[in-house]
Design a protein around this nucleic acid. Sequence first.
DNA 1: ACCTGAACACCGTTCAAGT
DNA 2: ACCTGAACACCGTTCAAGT
Lengths: 232, 232
Amino acid sequence: MTDRLDQQRIVHAAIEFIDQKGLHALTMRRLGAFLGVEAMALYRYVPSREDLLDGVVDAVLDALHHDPEVHLHAEHGWQDYLQRLAHGIRRIALDHPAVFPLVATRPPAAPWIRPPLRSLRWLESFFTVLEGAGFSDDGAVRAYRAYTTFLLGHLLLEVSHRGPMTDDEDDDGDDEAPAAGPSDMGLENYPHLRALESLLDQDESVAEFEEALESLLDRLEMRVRRRGRRGR
Amino acid sequence: MTDRLDQQRIVHAAIEFIDQKGLHALTMRRLGAFLGVEAMALYRYVPSREDLLDGVVDAVLDALHHDPEVHLHAEHGWQDYLQRLAHGIRRIALDHPAVFPLVATRPPAAPWIRPPLRSLRWLESFFTVLEGAGFSDDGAVRAYRAYTTFLLGHLLLEVSHRGPMTDDEDDDGDDEAPAAGPSDMGLENYPHLRALESLLDQDESVAEFEEALESLLDRLEMRVRRRGRRGR
DNA sequence: ACCTGAACACCGTTCAAGT
DNA sequence: ACCTGAACACCGTTCAAGT
């Protein structure tokens, strides 16, 4: 029925599986069944579940390399580049909301690799662009840290709203707790929260992403202009 | 030998256990042994492992309520308050680096609750202070989103450098891979990375935290001043 | 009232055995 | 060459039984 197994097929099946049923549902045995094979067959191609998860993270981020929107158009400058890169990573996060927490929290290969920018190739291109644009070494590294902090925080929070369904397995009946009303959870004693609830519930993530990203780039821009002050 | 069991004792033992051996090592059976009891005894006080983890997150954040540095000194204004709150949460993250990823990624009780600010009590106080300081509803909510984004991203990245040892279990021998040199991992083809490696390796998290926090507060300040422009 | 032992269904992983 | 079956050590969780 199914074609032959290989590492790529397994990793991509794992991604599909996680996107559909959530990370917590992924077991070697279920992934085997998903592929029409016994779990034990996977071990021909993948050394362990942990390595499989690393493979999933790498494969998901690999899409960046094939994203035409991100490819360097040097003429538009470093801000354009950081914008494209950020949007490319955001697209990945939104495509695989259930995988992104893995991208965010798997221990990176080296301590100075900061998710969600997890590959040496992208780091190299990041620094190439910034130094080409006149950033000092120190300025480029500080930009890298601020940029990754923002991406990680924003995307993790944005994506957590979009898990694969309510996570309560199969919803196999009418035994849900009464839940005390649509969106009530003891707000009686928190007047500000009650007043702000509808505002809090709105999804403004696109606008916030653009705005915060722009403001970050502005901050970095100011640092390039007065650069050297702190350069060693 | 040990005192009697109760939920508090179990949750705090779990925190200690995670801090010592890492999240991945926490199983009901091992936690039982840690407490001098069979795993099954825990189920008298804790409905499930998932609930235990929720309890861990709550308990760790509860320290904020007893942190004298954070308690409201209204006379010093909203910026002082957000500074104290941020530093309080940072202290918690650094005290429990192996627990913080849980704080960051456990699905919150409501979709508008954004880690690491996970309790209605702190949200209420956050909004009380900001609205008292003249923020519009919209401005306060946007401040909340930007503030949590920053805290989550920064602390998750800062804390990931400080896991509980190398995570390779017991280090039970000399069978470590040769590792090809102290800090080498194929950097040959990445000249910028090689040049920046020593800078990248430096830990500047304190300075970056202060600086980025201050810049965030400045940005918010600018928004209060021209407030109303976007208030619906 | 509180803990234990035995049991169940499920894991990750190994390895000899089948085709 | 590639997959399977059986097995091992370990999970979370339930429940009748012990003290």
